[in-house]
Amino acid sequence: MQLRIAIAALGLAGLVGTAQAQDADPHLARNLAATCANCHGTNGNAQKGMASLAGESAEKIMKKLADFRSGDAPATIMHQIVKGYTEEQLALISEWFAAQK
């Protein structure tokens, strides 16, 4: 019994990566948005010289990202970065920043 529980627990804990690993992490949006924070500030609150994203509407952020992707918005670097994320990931990121203060 003990051993069985141990094995089940190990599986859950992801040490061998089973059931849970296939479900999206509950913090996925937060984690994805954090990849932007190096330039756009912790939780999207940027320091001088970069665009703040906290509290912007998700639609507005998604539109801007789409324009970077298509080349409609001028960019030095964002047109290259945006192509590294899926549309689903960008939607999660946009919604997460929209919910920040």
């Binding site: 804990a13 992801g14 990566g17 992490d25 913090h27 996925l28 937060r30 984690n31 990849t35 994320y85």
Partner: peptide, 25 residues
Amino acid sequence: KLVAAAILNLLEGKAPNAAPVLMNT
């Protein structure tokens, strides 16, 4: 950030995020 998220999951007995993204500039 990847490791901070992973550790907080592990402390709660959950698997680390299975789909992390990293980027460099």
